[in-house]
Amino acid sequence: MKVVIDADLCQGQGRCFSIAPNVFGFDDLGNGVVLGDGTLTSETLKLAQLAMANCPEHAITIEDAE
């Protein structure tokens, strides 16, 4: 599983990196960025899903990596 932020949708609401600081960080404008390549482990998946459910701009998706 892999998490992705759509940079065109992200407005820097800041929810993702406060909910899941091990999965998301921020750039110098305060927009959310995925840390590393976004691959989720069984531990990080739950928090990434919670961040996704809290993003007001619907900018986060979790993809099945094949």
């Binding site: 407005q11 820097g12 459910a53 809290n54 993003c55 007001p56």
Partner: peptide, 13 residues
């Protein structure tokens, strides 16, 4: 789960 819009939505967040 709280996708609130208190700070606005879109480019004027």
């Amino acid at each position: 789960v709280n996708r609130h819009a208190a700070f606005g939505l879109g480019i004027h967040r």
